[in-house]
Amino acid sequence: MEKLLISNTPHVRGKATTRRIMIDVMIALLPATVAGIVFFGWRAALTIVLALISAVASEVVFRLVKKESVKSIIKKYDFTSSVTGLLLGINLGSQSPWYTPILGSVFAIIVVKMLFGGTGKNFVNPAICGRVFLVMSFGAAVGSGWLEPSIPAFLPTESGNLSLLDLLIGTGVAGSIGETSKICLIIGGIYLVVRGVIDWKYPTIYILVTGLTLSIFKLDFSLFLPSILSGGLVLGAIFMATDYVTTPNTMTGNIVYFTALGILTGIFRAVSGGEAVSYCILLMNFTVPLIDRFIVPKPFGYIKPEKPKAAKEGKNG
């Protein structure tokens, strides 16, 4: 009897830690980041580095203000701020002024993440919120870089001049730094799926439903491929919408969430003619608690209780 170890659950632990997952996400973002820097030049690299550094610095400063020791900050640092900074950086135009990535990162980390309690407690995706903050504040300044190489590619009707291959690889496509090269994003997405960080179903649902909704709305199915290969849809679907904190807990909930997200994005794109992915993800993030409230996972081995009438008959029998 003495050899038996008695301990509380959980008895089997996985290797997944927040730190490992976040480093995986950063590795997955690397191809798209490199592609962005190749396409847009050193200004893109500067934007990304500024966003990254200021995001990490904001978290460290916030924790220092809260009188945490440097040792515990380093020990507890889980790389979520780095991911937020990197995502925000590649979500901006390459010609955006130098202060925009800094302001966006500070807003994303301090206001959206740290003020609500840090990692895992933010109610919306910090990078999305930082981007929306910047677009609201400096619409023209942040957007100017998007038109830099050629026409805005997120307008499905105008992307006719570009071949589908161009859209897939990102050559000559306008857009924010990281969103143009779909093939690099998809490679990153496959890496995440292989590492078990995200489920392949959900981004696929989002992307396909968006394309379908837009095609149905415009009654033109030739728009299907150009629309899903343009704009920030692939980036948003793989890296932004799948954020653990801001997606429902159950599989059914996730399917509902990503389908609704796709329908919303498709309609917004069709009606406004502009890019709506970040606003749609932000909007749907607010519905996550609602979805979790109504779609509750069944406990293991749960049997549906019989109706009282049937039970009565059974007793009589």
Binding site: L103, V111, F133, M136, S137, F138, G139
Partner: peptide, 13 residues
């Protein structure tokens, strides 16, 4: 100037 602050979201913030 940061346009966010004169918009409705900035008001709530």
């Amino acid at each position: 100037s940061i346009g966010f602050f004169v918009q409705p979201a900035g008001a709530l913030f």
